[in-house]
Write a protein that binds this DNA or RNA. Sequence first.
DNA 1: GTTACCGTTTACGTCTACGTCAACTATTTT
DNA 2: AAAATAGTTGACGTAGACGTAAACGGTAAC
Lengths: 168, 168
Amino acid sequence: MSEPQPTIREHDLNGTTYTIGELAKEFDVTTRAIRFYEDEGLLSPVRIGSKRLYRRRDRARLKLILRGKRLGFTLAEIRETFNLYDEAHGESQQLRYYLSVLEEKRQHLIRQRADLEETLRELDQSYAHCEQLLAQQEQRKAKDQNAAARRPTRRDPTAATQQDSVAN
Amino acid sequence: MSEPQPTIREHDLNGTTYTIGELAKEFDVTTRAIRFYEDEGLLSPVRIGSKRLYRRRDRARLKLILRGKRLGFTLAEIRETFNLYDEAHGESQQLRYYLSVLEEKRQHLIRQRADLEETLRELDQSYAHCEQLLAQQEQRKAKDQNAAARRPTRRDPTAATQQDSVAN
DNA sequence: GTTACCGTTTACGTCTACGTCAACTATTTT
DNA sequence: AAAATAGTTGACGTAGACGTAAACGGTAAC
C-alpha cells in the first residue's frame, strides 16, 4: 500500500499542495487547459524543479475561473477581476474605481439572471405542454385498445402488446 | 414627412415584416451576424427578390438566439433546441425524448443559476468590504483634517472645503 | 535496464462567431 | 446624372480557448 501522503517534497511548502494532474482530475479539466490559464496569467503555481505545484490560493482561483467560464466570462475578464481584486488595497481612488467595476458586473449578472429565469419559465411551459400532448396520446391509445377489446376477433390476443411497439 | 408605414411591398405578406437593417438596429447586432445565423440554419427569412424579409417568427427566434448567447449557449445548441421544438409534434417516442432533453436543459440552467447566485453573493461581500475600507479612509482623512484644524495656521479659512475636493 | 507514468516545452491545428473588405445591385435623394 | 443609402454574395482574416502531436526528463515498479 502506498502512503496517502500527498507526495510533497523539497523542504515542504507549508500547507496543502496539488499537482497539476490532481487538480485536473478534481475539476475535470485537462492539464493543457490549466497550463493555458497560467500562460494567460490566471494562475501562478510554485515550481519544484520543473514541476508545477499548486497551493490553496491557486485551487481557489481555478474554481473561480471555471465558474466564471460557466457564466460566459472570457479569460481576459476573469483575469481583470483577479488583478483588480489584488490591487484594490490602498487608495480611495482605486477603491472607488473597483466599486464601479463591481457595480457594472452586478448589472451584468442581474441581467443574466433575468434571462435565466425567463428561459426557465419558458422551459417549464414547454415541458407542461409536452406532457399534455403525451397524456392525450396515452388516452387515445387506451381508447383504441378498448375498442379492440370490445370486438374480440380470433386474432392473436397479444395484438395489443404489439400495437404498443408500433410507436417504436 | 415620410409615411410611418413599414415600407412593405410585393403583394404584402400578411403580418408585420422587418428588413435586416431594422432588426439589426432593434437588437443591436450587425447585419453580418444576422446573415451568419441564417447560414447556420437558425433563421429562414423570406426573400423578396434578393432582399431578406423577416417575419414575426424570425424576430422571435432572433430574440431567443441572443438570449441564448447571453446565457453562454453555442449556436449549435440553440439550433438543436429549435429543431427539436419544431419536430416534437407527433409521436410519444419523440415527445418522451424531447422531455428528457428539456430536463437536461433544466439541470444545466439550475446549475448555472446556482453559480450566478453564488457569484452575486461574493460580489456583494467584496462590495461591502470595499465600502468599509473606503469609510476607514474617510475617517482617517477627517481626523487628519481635525488635527490640522486644532492648530490653525494663518492659512486660507476655506482650506477645509478645498480639502474635500482632494478626494475628487 | 526498460517499461510505465507523470510532467514539461514548443509548435502547429481547430472550431466558433463573427469582422472586414471588395465588388455589385437596386432604390431614393439631390 | 450623380451621389447617397441599404442590401447582396463571396472570400479572407481573426480572437479566444484550447486540442493534439512530438520530443524529452524524472522516478517508481518490475
